[in-house]
């Protein structure tokens, strides 16, 4: 089975799964794990938007 994801959806899926693993493995309590997972996800997706705007500015 082959499927094509857009660059953005691939980045969001990557951020989601990596954040779940980081949250579970890098913190001890459940609340800390959820908070750290959300923090990582926000940084990943925020990084995607930041890189997108940098590329837009470079292209102008």
């Amino acid at each position: 089975m082959t499927f094509t994801l857009s660059h953005f959806s691939a980045a969001v899926l990557f951020a989601l799964f990596a954040s779940v693993v980081f949250g579970i493995t890098q913190r001890n309590t459940t609340m800390e794990q959820i908070r750290y997972g959300l923090y990582c996800f926000a940084l990943f997706v925020g990084g995607v938007f930041a890189a997108g705007w940098v590329m837009w500015l470079l292209r102008r």
């Binding site: 089975m1 082959t2 499927f3 094509t4 994801l5 691939a10 899926l13 990557f14 989601l16 799964f17 990596a18 779940v20 693993v21 579970i24």
Partner: peptide, 15 residues
């Protein structure tokens, strides 16, 4: 962990 790792692996193969 299982869902995350297996999904990433399968999505990678799917792409």
């Amino acid at each position: 962990l299982m869902v995350s790792v297996v999904a990433m692996f399968l999505i990678g193969l799917g792409m």
